[in-house]
């Protein structure tokens, strides 16, 4: 049945955008936890673990996300995991995000001057106290803007999961486009929804960057 592109379809697209957001949120949490591990492995004074983290980052940042998605989508069933598009999408986006978060947070940690560590030591603080009270608060402040900036990339990249059949905003647009034969208005609507999400995030990142820089 061919029908007109109607208001109900716009509502359907907005509802599908919730899956885009949920997927991005899942990848943020999953990738964030894994990213902490990557950042820590990258900075601790033990070479083999540093190399492991570097290899991980290069592997993820040196291959296309689309390839990672397909490898997980076809690979997970082989190790006996029941896999639907959601699992493959959430897992590979989390892994993808972990490499980027790891690098962002390592950079933030290392951008805190060495003298801050020395000052803490001179005051007689333990390593944990120096990390917790002196270095981390500064590193977190530095990392917030680039972290939010990366979320824009993450939201945009959830669109690739449409290609393994996960129904989020882009896949929903394909479905509506197939039913209405009105690809131009459908995809433009999808673009507008993505724009609203991503533009808000990038403006937030800019705002945080300005505010946190002034306060320093």
């Amino acid at each position: 049945m061919i029908r007109e592109f109607a208001d109900a379809d716009i509502v359907y697209l907005i509802e599908a955008a919730r899956w885009t957001l949920l997927l991005a949120l899942t990848a943020t949490v999953g990738g964030g936890l894994l990213g902490i591990v990557v950042a820590v492995l990258r900075v601790i004074p033990f070479r083999p673990l540093n190399w492991l983290a570097i290899a991980w980052i290069n592997l993820i940042q040196g291959t296309p996300l689309l390839g990672q998605l397909f490898v997980f989508f076809f690979g997970l069933p082989l190790v006996g995991l029941s896999v639907d598009a959601w699992t493959a999408a959430a897992l590979s986006l989390s892994i993808y995000a972990s490499a980027f978060f790891g690098e962002i947070w390592r950079g933030s940690l290392q951008s805190v001057s060495q003298r801050q560590w020395e000052a803490g030591a001179a005051l007689g603080l333990t390593y944990a106290q120096r990390l917790g009270h002196v270095v981390l608060p500064q590193a977190i402040r530095i990392s917030i803007a680039p972290t939010v900036g990366f979320l824009v990339q993450l939201v945009k990249n959830t669109s690739l999961t449409a290609l393994i059949g996960f129904v989020e905003l882009t896949r929903a647009s394909q479905i509506i486009s197939g039913a209405t034969f009105a690809p131009l208005p459908v995809y433009l609507t999808a673009a507008v929804i993505y724009f609203i999400i991503c533009f808000s995030l990038s403006q937030l990142a800019h705002m945080l960057e300005r505010r946190l820089h002034v306060a320093r």
């Binding site: 009105a182 995809y187 991503c198 533009f199």
Partner: peptide
């Protein structure tokens, strides 16, 4: 710059390939 950087390439691709034929 803002329009292109805040929307996914995949959707831009679909607009060019599937959308433009309708005009």
């Amino acid at each position: 710059v803002e329009a292109l950087r805040n929307t996914p390439l995949l959707v831009q691709l679909f607009i060019v390939f599937f959308g433009l034929p309708s005009i």
